[in-house]
Nucleic acid binder design. Sequence first.
DNA 1: TTCAATTATGAATGTAAATTCATTAATTGA
DNA 2: TCAATTAATGAATTTACATTCATAATTGAA
Lengths: 221, 221
Amino acid sequence: MNVNSLIEDKFITEKPELSLSRRERDKLLRRADILRAAEHVFALKGYYEATIQDIAREAQYATGTVYLYFKDKESLYFSLVERKYSDLLAILKERTSVARAAREKLEIFIHENLGFFERNQDFFRIFVSEGNKSQALKVGRFHKLSVIKQHREFVTELVKLGQEERLIRSDFSAKQIGDVLIPIFMSVVFNWLKEESKGAKSLSRMSGFILDMFLNGAGKK
Amino acid sequence: MNVNSLIEDKFITEKPELSLSRRERDKLLRRADILRAAEHVFALKGYYEATIQDIAREAQYATGTVYLYFKDKESLYFSLVERKYSDLLAILKERTSVARAAREKLEIFIHENLGFFERNQDFFRIFVSEGNKSQALKVGRFHKLSVIKQHREFVTELVKLGQEERLIRSDFSAKQIGDVLIPIFMSVVFNWLKEESKGAKSLSRMSGFILDMFLNGAGKK
DNA sequence: TTCAATTATGAATGTAAATTCATTAATTGA
DNA sequence: TCAATTAATGAATTTACATTCATAATTGAA
């Protein structure tokens, strides 16, 4: 996606001045290799049916090597989720910041978010098609992931702004309303992912539908 | 829930005149015992972490006994899903049929659906919180389950009726619009399931919010 | 009461992966 | 060039269940 995806964010972005030793850098690159492979395999098989061997093979490493870079399967998976969402958040923050009005911010938000899903459809297929769920899955922990909370909060803030500008009704809380936008959004993505006809229509074309539905509802005017 | 939940639907409802031998009836009751236990355990642990032993223990049977009544873990799980949804569908069909106008049908639909979720929250927690998903999970097959298709179709029909009555806009297809109602709905359920504060507010109180949001959207009038 | 048929039991079996670790290879700096 | 350090390997170990099955208990018809 972007450079931050290739190399561990925190190192690159937090301390860009301290350039790492080649060794360290190589290590991060190898880690990134494995993450890349994991992304692919998880997307293909889902969390439970993806095996560490699959991932290792895909990354052209031996099984054990994966454990040199990640504590276990679960933390490998979560590293992935965190990275994806933090990329997404970064994009959303950057792009929406160019707009002033809430309506425009919303448009950009929806559009960029869809675009990101479209570009990362393999990855999000796991989410949408398997698991933003489970408890067992540990995925209950999903919702506790700070990046995911942040995404939700971001939406809440947008709605709040919309309320201040009297674009959005205020008889319900921003959080409550935001929690309606996200699933409308997700359902469109979800249905899009299911369709074979994907080649034809682009996901980001659906922006208008989502915003319209969100703001105006299904009722006839 | 209802009697049909206790004893296998098809036997009871399809041939009520042929009363089964006690043996047969007992068998169905034992099967139902296991289903009941499975429902509880799956709800608690999710599909993957629920073990057959857990279920057997809960039902006060030995492990192997479960296999006398169900082919394997997966089919046990699907039996559950099918039964729940067919109960739900039956209720929805019956209750909405008393109304004539689309708007009223919609109200009833939402209200009854929420009520059902509320009464069956343990079960739906799996769905909502883990998995109407996965590929691996076989749960990809979820969406192919006839009961789930039927539920979706039911919503589409309601929307279609609404369009005919000019309650609902017609610039998008009934299916597309129906696919927005369901997730709005699910998100409310989902958020409700997460809250600790559940004791206080009843889920079915949320009916108004859902219908309002669905028909009027979040935009200020 | 008896015995065949039906059910239930839970230990044993099989399988599939996750994880570990002794061994080998590669890299580094002197 | 040569230890010494670091990394990679993949076979062996462990774990965790699902599923089976020989055995025991229960049932009911005669």
